[in-house]
């Protein structure tokens, strides 16, 4: 039984914070992209043209039915061979995380849109609105409120830890390097777990709150 030596964490806190910063930047950039791309995919998925619906469905299913690890390795190692352009680890991380998130978000959006009673859209169209106007003024504002908890439960902070596999220097990468370097994995990895929990927990609380509020309404 070894004794805990938390000094190893405090001495190296600078590295962990640098990693944390990268984790946050990576996750937030990817989330922003994922939210936008996801909406486009969802609208394509609901399009009236079969080819668009089908392509969007394929996109969603591919990203949802393969492991994230396979996706990141493919984007980082295989895609550059096809395109002839090497990717930085950060770019590969952002591409993978945002595409991954967009596929899930597209389904969230779609469920939210379909959850609005068809009568709402009918009534908007009956007023002479175009499809786009009905979506923007009537369906989306209502759908968004219902989707909020589901959108909030998409958590890229946790997912982004896997990007360490392609040597992007985020929190998990520093944690693993420091564990090997200091031979103090107990302290380093436990601290890292707590940092992730602290990063994720507020979001989980917010989602719980949204769920409760929605149920109350």
């Amino acid at each position: 039984m070894s004794t805990w030596d938390l000094g190893v964490v405090t001495n190296n806190i600078g590295y962990l914070l640098a990693g944390l910063r990268m984790t946050i930047v990576l996750s937030l950039v990817s989330l922003a992209l994922g939210l936008a791309v996801g909406l486009v995919i969802a609208l394509l998925r609901l399009s009236r043209w079969r080819a668009l619906r089908w392509s969007a469905g394929l996109y969603i299913d591919i990203w949802r039915s393969t492991p994230f690890l396979a996706q990141i390795l493919w984007i980082f190692y295989a895609l550059p061979i096809l395109t002839g352009h090497a990717l930085t680890a950060f770019a590969a991380g952002v591409i993978t995380l945002s595409c991954h998130a967009s596929a899930y978000l597209a389904e969230v959006y779609r469920a939210g849109i379909l959850g609005i009673a068809p009568g709402q859209r009918q009534a908007a169209l009956a007023l002479g609105m175009t499809n786009a106007q009905a979506a923007r003024r009537i369906v989306l504002p209502q759908a968004l409120k219902q989707m909020l908890p589901a959108i909030g439960s998409i958590n890229l902070f946790k997912e982004s830890a896997l990007v360490s596999i392609i040597n992007l220097q985020e929190l998990m990468w520093y944690a693993e390097s420091l564990s090997g370097f200091t031979m103090r994995s107990v302290e380093i990895l436990s601290a890292t777990a707590l940092i992730y929990a602290a990063l994720t927990y507020p979001q989980a609380l917010a989602v719980n709150y949204l769920h409760r509020r929605q149920r109350a309404a």
């Binding site: 070894s2 902070f157 946790k158 997912e159 982004s160 830890a161 896997l162 360490s164 998990m172 944690a175 693993e176 564990s179 994995s185 107990v186 990895l189 436990s190 890292t192 777990a193 992730y196 929990a197 994720t200 927990y201 989980a204």
Partner: peptide, 21 residues
């Protein structure tokens, strides 16, 4: 809450390297 708010990768590596110690 602990298992839901930390990355699976951290859990896997923690169980593999820390638990034996």
């Amino acid at each position: 809450e602990l298992f839901r708010t930390t990355p699976l990768l951290v859990q896997v590596i923690w169980v593999y390297t820390v638990l034996p110690l």
